[in-house]
Amino acid sequence: MNHQDSDPIDILLVEDNPGDVRLTQEAFKEGKINNELHVVNDGEAALDYLYQRGDYADAVPPELVLLDLNLPRVDGLEVLEEVKSDPTLSQIPVVILTSSEAEEDIVKSYENHTNAYLTKPVSPDDFVELVRTLEEFWFELVKLPPTDD
Rank of each mutant, 00 (worst) to 15 (best):
N2M: 04
Q4F: 10
D5M: 12
D5F: 11
D5T: 15
D7L: 10
P8S: 14
I11D: 02
L12T: 15
L12M: 06
E15G: 06
N17T: 14
N17A: 06
G19Q: 15
D20Y: 14
V21H: 12
V21P: 05
R22V: 02
G31T: 09
K32V: 12
I33L: 06
N34I: 12
H38F: 05
H38P: 15
V39K: 06
N41E: 14
D42L: 08
A46F: 01
L47K: 09
L47V: 13
L47M: 15
L50D: 04
Y51I: 02
D55K: 15
D55W: 02
A57C: 07
A57G: 01
P61A: 15
P62I: 01
P62V: 12
P62M: 04
E63D: 12
E63S: 08
E63F: 06
L64E: 04
V65I: 07
V65S: 01
V65C: 03
L66E: 08
N70G: 04
V74F: 14
V74N: 14
D75F: 02
V79C: 02
L80C: 10
K84C: 12
K84Y: 09
K84F: 12
S85E: 15
S85Q: 12
D86G: 15
D86M: 13
T88I: 09
S90C: 08
I92W: 06
P93C: 14
P93D: 06
P93R: 07
V94F: 05
V94R: 02
V94A: 15
I96W: 05
L97K: 00
E101I: 12
E103F: 04
E103M: 14
D105Q: 02
I106V: 11
V107Y: 09
V107K: 15
H113M: 06
H113Y: 15
H113Q: 13
A116H: 10
A116T: 14
L118I: 09
T119N: 13
K120C: 06
K120I: 07
P121V: 09
S123Q: 13
S123E: 07
P124A: 03
D125P: 04
F127S: 00
F127M: 04
E129L: 06
E129V: 07
V131S: 05
V131M: 13
E135C: 10
E135G: 03
F139Q: 03
F139L: 04
L141M: 00
K143Y: 04
P145G: 00
T147I: 00
D148G: 01
